[in-house]
Computed example of a mutant assay.
Amino acid sequence: MNTKLVDIQPRELKFIFELKKQSSCCVQLFNNSNHHVAFKVKTTSPKKYCVRPNTGTIDPKSTCEFTVTMQAQRLVPPDMVCKDKFLVQTTVVPAGTTNEDITSSTFAKDDGKYIDESKLRVILVSPPDSPVVSPISGTLKQVPAYEPSILKDQLLSKVEGLTQRHTQVPAHESSILNDQVPSKDESLTQWHTVTKEVEESKLENGELKPENDVEYVTMKGTEELKLVKDIEDMKSEINELESKLSEAKVTISKLTEERRLTFQERESLQKELALLRSKRNMRKVQVGFPLLFVCMVALISVMLGYLLHR
C-alpha cells in the first residue's frame, strides 16, 4: 500500500506559548481509503501534552479530528525551539470497530499488517501582545499594548523625512518623487489596511482568537478560584481533623490515667478486705471455746452429779 491512509492537516503543531498558560491545537485526519481506519497518537513528552481523543476510528472518505493541549510551562525554552514530536499511527480495521476495541495490539507490526506512521513536529509561536523571545539573545521582550501607535508615529516620521528630502531634490526629480512618496493621510490609510490584513490572516490561520482567549481566560480564572477554594476547604478540614485527633489523644491519656488509678484503688481495697478478714478470724478464736473442751467439762459434770446422788 503505497498511498497514505489518512491526510493530516496541519503537519506542524503550532502552539501560542505563554508562561503559566495552556495552549491548544486542533489536527484533522481525512481517510483517503475505502476502508475503516483506526488511529493512535503518541508523543515524546506524554506528561507535557494532553491528546483528546488519542485513539479512534475514521469511516471511509470521512474526517476526524483530535485536540492537543500543551500544559502550562514555567520556563521559556531556549530560542523558542521545541524538540517534541508526535507520531500518528493508522491501520485498516474491520467495519464496526469501536474505540473500546482499539488496543496496543491493533498497531502491532506483525503478520504482515500495514501500519502507516506520520510524524508531526511542534512549533512555538509568541503571542502578539505578550512577552516574546528575541531571536538573537533568547530573552523575553515585553511588547506594549500601544505598539501600533508607535509604529504609526514611526511611519509618519519616515514619511516626513521623505517629504523633507523631496523638498531638497532638484526640480526635475520632484515630479517623480511626488508619484512615489505618499502623503500622511495615504500612509495612515495604508497602515490601517496592512494592519487589518495581518489581523485577518491571523484569524484565518487560528493564531488570533480574541473571543476564545477571553472565554479561556475567564474559564481558567474560574477554575483557579474553584481550585483555591477547594484547597482552603481541604486545609480547614485537615486542621479540624488534627484538632479532633489532639482532643482524642488527650481523652485517651486521661482514660489511661483513670484506669491506672482505679486499678491501684482496687488493689488497696483488696488488701484492706484481706486484713479485715484476718482480724475477724482472730477475734473468733479469742472469744469462743473449743468443742472438745466443752464436751470434757460436760462429761465431768455428769459423772460428778451421778457420784453425788449415789
Rank of each mutant, 00 (worst) to 15 (best):
C26V: 12
D7K: 06
F263Q: 15
I123Y: 03
E204V: 11
K226P: 00
Q164C: 02
I58H: 12
K271N: 13
A95T: 11
A171N: 08
D59K: 13
T195W: 07
L208V: 08
Q286Y: 09
V159E: 00
K229M: 01
E173M: 13
V159P: 02
H172M: 08
V198H: 04
S45I: 09
C295F: 00
E232H: 14
I176Q: 06
T167H: 04
D230Y: 09
D230W: 12
K119D: 03
D84A: 05
H192W: 12
G288F: 14
A108M: 03
I102V: 03
H36N: 15
T69R: 14
K249F: 10
M282P: 03
V81K: 15
T97A: 08
Q89H: 09
Q28V: 04
T256H: 12
Q270H: 15
R260T: 07
P53V: 00
V181R: 02
L177N: 04
E117T: 02
E197K: 04
L273C: 07
T193Q: 08
E242V: 11
M303Q: 13
F30C: 11
K229G: 07
P46A: 11
S253I: 14
M219T: 12
V133L: 05
V198C: 11
L29G: 01
S301L: 03
E237I: 07
T106S: 03
P53G: 01
V194S: 14
S134A: 02
T262G: 15
K14T: 07
L276S: 09
S126I: 00
H172P: 06
A95G: 07
S157Y: 07
S301H: 04
E173S: 02
V132R: 01
R165Y: 08
V88I: 08
V133K: 01
E223P: 07
Q190K: 06
T167W: 01
K141L: 05
L140V: 07
L241M: 06
S301C: 03
V143A: 03
K249N: 14
V81D: 00
T193K: 09
S24C: 04
V198R: 07
L245D: 13
E237G: 04
I238N: 06
A108G: 05
K42T: 02
T218E: 11
K48N: 11
P46Y: 06
K279V: 13
K40G: 06
R11H: 08
P170Q: 15
H172K: 12
T98W: 04
G161M: 04
M70C: 11
P128L: 09
G138P: 00
